[in-house]
């Protein structure tokens, strides 16, 4: 329970941060040339000033900036993110529709990067400075330097155009209606390439961190004790080293939640996935500032929630945290 209290206290501490973000972004977007009504009028092919004034009143743009911000914050408490003029729906609805593909993509990319980062890091650390280590470390450097959108495009060329193993984009096959297991498999097939594309850079980071932290933990006294007890090397690594060496990687998940969300903007655009990232891109292009602000709010919450989960996970892995507080 101590763990939960601690994590909840961290969660409460992030509320002022959230407020700061929303207020800052709201004021920043006031500087944008043209508002929702301008974009709407341009889409309709123009209109008279009376209509513009009417629309501004409808969208609550007829009062001062401070009053608008106050209203927006009041509505946020009830999770009302306003109305998207471009999509003709409440912003909350638009975002909720787009959230599942992004969460699925992030979860699968994270699992992919975490699992293979862990395995490769352990292999590299156990064969340190020999050829498996050199190979893995070099691969890590190259993956780190690969722009994700470019890797995605090249993966489409190889795996979709030439080999035709995976579809080049989309979230599911729209030419046929699938149900049950078939639908799940269909979505999984569509997510293979985006997962690899988004996960690649994190794989590179995780394997490097895992290798370094394995090497550090392997040199500690308790490992020597475990070896002196006569445990086999595999058992030493699996039971004693791994759990301790994983801690820096778990910290990184929280730190990089935002980077991953940002990365999904690009990856979703490459693979035409109908997710939150693509919505962010579309709302910039279409100047749908209300939706953009909503996305900022939701992505900040997403990052905070991921950090909350990481705090709990971290405390479970490292009992010293719960005991120390």
């Amino acid at each position: 329970m101590k763990v939960l209290t601690l994590a909840l206290r961290r969660l409460a501490a992030s509320l002022p941060t959230l407020l700061l973000i929303i207020a800052g972004m709201f004021l920043l977007l006031q500087l944008a040339p043209g508002d929702t009504v301008d974009a709407l009028m341009a889409q309709m092919g123009g209109g008279d000033p009376a209509l513009a004034a009417e629309l501004r009143r409808f969208y609550g743009l007829d009062v001062g900036v401070a009053a608008q911000l106050g209203r927006y914050l009041m509505r946020l408490v009830t999770l009302d993110l306003g109305f998207s003029a471009i999509y003709g729906k409440p912003v909350a609805t638009v975002i909720l529709e787009r959230l599942p593909p992004t969460i699925l993509l992030m979860a699968s990319a994270l699992s992919f990067a975490f699992f293979f980062g862990l395995v490769l890091g352990v292999i590299a650390a156990r064969r340190v400075n020999r050829w498996p280590d050199t190979l893995i470390s070099t691969l890590g450097l190259v993956f780190y330097a690969t722009p994700s959108f470019w890797f995605g495009l090249m993966a489409i060329v190889v795996f979709s155009v030439y080999l035709q193993w995976f579809p080049p984009g989309g979230f599911s096959d729209i030419t046929q209606t699938l149900t049950g297991v078939a639908a799940v498999l269909d979505i999984a097939r569509h997510l293979v390439l985006p997962t690899l594309t988004l996960g690649l850079i994190f794989l590179a980071i995780y394997l490097r961190i895992m290798r370094a932290s394995m090497l550090e933990v392997l040199s500690l006294d308790f490992v020597r004790t475990a070896r002196a007890k006569g445990l086999s090397e595999t058992r030493v690594v699996a039971r004693h080293v791994l759990r301790n060496a994983m801690l820096p990687m778990v910290t990184l998940i929280g730190l990089q939640a935002g980077t991953m969300l940002g990365g999904s903007v690009v990856v979703e655009s490459v693979f035409a996935l109908p997710g939150l990232g693509r919505l962010a891109y579309e709302s910039v292009v279409q100047r749908d500032l209300n939706t953009l602000l909503g996305i900022v709010f939701v992505s900040a919450i997403l990052v905070i929630v991921i950090n909350f989960l990481v705090d709990i996970l971290y405390a479970r892995l490292d009992p010293r945290i719960a005991a120390g507080s």
Partner: peptide
């Protein structure tokens, strides 16, 4: 540090999109 945290909580690519949307 609160300000720094706010910047770190916001995904930097999304902040970049907002800045480009506002300032061209």
């Amino acid at each position: 540090m609160r300000v720094t945290e706010a910047f770190q909580t916001l995904p930097n690519f999304i902040l970049l999109l907002v800045l480009v949307a506002v300032f061209g």
